[in-house]
Computed example of a mutant assay.
Amino acid sequence: MHKTLLILTLAAAMALAGCTTLDPYTGEQKVSSATKGAAIGAAAGALIGNVTTRRDRTKRAMVGAGIGALAGAAVGNYMDRQELELRQRLEGSGVSVTRVGDNLVLNMPGNITFDVNRAEVKPDFYEVLNSVALVAKKYDQTAIEVAGHTDSTGSVEYNMDLSQRRADSVARYLAGQGVSRVRLDTIGFGPHRPVADNSTTHGRSLNRRVELTLIPLTL
Rank of each mutant, 00 (worst) to 15 (best):
A167F: 06
L214D: 00
G72I: 12
A39M: 10
G68C: 13
P194K: 03
D197T: 01
N117I: 05
V121S: 12
S152M: 10
A171V: 02
R209I: 01
G94F: 03
F189C: 11
K3V: 12
D56T: 10
I40K: 14
I7L: 15
A34I: 13
R204N: 02
L217H: 02
G148T: 02
T53A: 14
V95G: 01
L10A: 15
V121H: 11
I187K: 08
T20A: 09
Q164S: 13
T58G: 08
P216L: 07
D168E: 07
V100S: 00
A136S: 08
L47E: 13
S131I: 05
L206P: 03
D161H: 12
G18A: 12
C19E: 14
A171G: 04
G94Q: 04
A196M: 04
G76T: 09
I215C: 03
A38K: 12
I7W: 13
E28L: 15
L90K: 03
Y139I: 01
L5A: 11
D140F: 11
T150H: 02
E85I: 09
K137C: 10
R99S: 00
L129T: 07
Q141S: 12
E157Y: 08
V210Y: 01
I187G: 03
V95A: 03
N198E: 10
T186K: 04
R183D: 08
D140R: 06
R87F: 02
P194A: 01
G18V: 07
L16C: 10
V128E: 01
N198F: 06
I112L: 07
S199R: 10
D185I: 10
G45F: 05
G68E: 15
I7T: 14
T201H: 11
K30T: 09
S180F: 12
G45Q: 04
N207G: 07
G203K: 07
G68R: 15
L70W: 03
K30R: 13
T186N: 01
I144W: 06
Q177G: 02
V97W: 00
V116Q: 09
R118N: 15
R118T: 09
I40V: 13
M62S: 04
V31Q: 07
V51G: 05
A17M: 13
L16Y: 14
V121L: 08
A119M: 06
G66H: 05
N111A: 12
S199V: 06
G176M: 05
K138H: 08
G203M: 02
D124C: 10
V97I: 01
G92K: 00
H2D: 14
E83D: 05
I40Q: 11
P216W: 00
T98P: 01
A15K: 15
R60S: 14
T201D: 15
K30H: 14
A147N: 07
V116Y: 06
V195A: 02
G203C: 07
V135E: 02
A73L: 12
G203L: 06
N207W: 08
A147S: 11
V63Y: 12
G176I: 08
A171C: 05
S155T: 04
S93T: 09
K36Y: 13
M108V: 14
M160V: 13
L212N: 00
D197F: 03
A11M: 09
I67H: 10
A12V: 10
T153W: 06
R204C: 09
A42H: 11
K59V: 07
L219P: 04
V97F: 00
T213E: 01
A136D: 05
P24M: 04
R99C: 00
R181W: 08
A71W: 11
L219A: 11
